[in-house]
Computed example of a mutant assay.
Amino acid sequence: MADLPRFLTLADVAELLSTSVAQVYAMVRRGDLPAIKIGGRGQWRVSEDDLEAYLAELKTATRKFIDDHPFESGDGAETEDEDAIR
């Protein structure tokens, strides 16, 4: 993510992840995505480094899921994930 500011708004993060601000806010409030509150109005900011680390953790978790749940084709059975792709 070259040329990003050091700290991103939740809207910036949502745009980068192609998701909603509400989803990013939920990730922050659950503690999944580290963030800080700044200023008198308590605006949330996510550091670029924390976002990169979070994405790396997601990649690792996704790889583990794929390894633990191999895709089996040819038996005609469809998974929930396959249905979501359509």
Results as ranks from 00 to 15, higher is better:
47 S>H: 15
63 R>H: 09
76 G>C: 03
67 D>W: 00
11 A>K: 10
2 A>N: 10
61 A>T: 08
25 Y>S: 14
35 A>R: 03
12 D>H: 05
54 Y>G: 01
81 D>W: 14
24 V>T: 15
63 R>K: 10
51 L>W: 01
8 L>R: 02
81 D>R: 15
79 T>N: 06
56 A>Q: 08
47 S>D: 13
46 V>R: 00
75 D>W: 04
6 R>W: 09
69 H>S: 04
16 L>D: 00
77 A>C: 11
6 R>N: 10
85 I>V: 15
20 S>P: 05
29 R>N: 10
13 V>Q: 06
55 L>S: 04
29 R>D: 13
33 L>F: 00
55 L>W: 01
57 E>L: 13
44 W>E: 05
44 W>L: 14
51 L>M: 06
48 E>C: 14
76 G>Y: 01
15 E>P: 05
72 E>Q: 09
66 I>V: 14
50 D>N: 12
69 H>E: 01
53 A>Q: 13
2 A>R: 09
5 P>H: 13
82 E>W: 02
29 R>E: 13
23 Q>L: 12
26 A>N: 04
24 V>N: 11
50 D>S: 09
40 G>V: 08
13 V>A: 09
40 G>L: 08
14 A>F: 10
19 T>E: 00
56 A>S: 08
71 F>E: 11
11 A>M: 07
36 I>T: 14
25 Y>F: 12
14 A>D: 09
3 D>H: 09
28 V>M: 01
73 S>Y: 13
86 R>W: 09
11 A>Y: 01
25 Y>G: 07
64 K>Q: 10
48 E>H: 15
70 P>C: 07
77 A>S: 11
50 D>L: 04
71 F>G: 03
1 M>T: 04
4 L>C: 08
25 Y>H: 14
80 E>F: 05
9 T>C: 00
11 A>Q: 12
46 V>T: 00
77 A>M: 13
43 Q>Y: 07
51 L>I: 07
38 I>A: 10
5 P>I: 13
11 A>E: 12
80 E>C: 04
16 L>N: 02
4 L>K: 05
54 Y>A: 01
30 R>E: 05
31 G>M: 02
49 D>W: 03
27 M>N: 06
60 T>P: 03
83 D>V: 12
53 A>N: 11
10 L>D: 06
14 A>M: 11
85 I>T: 12
37 K>Q: 14
19 T>S: 01
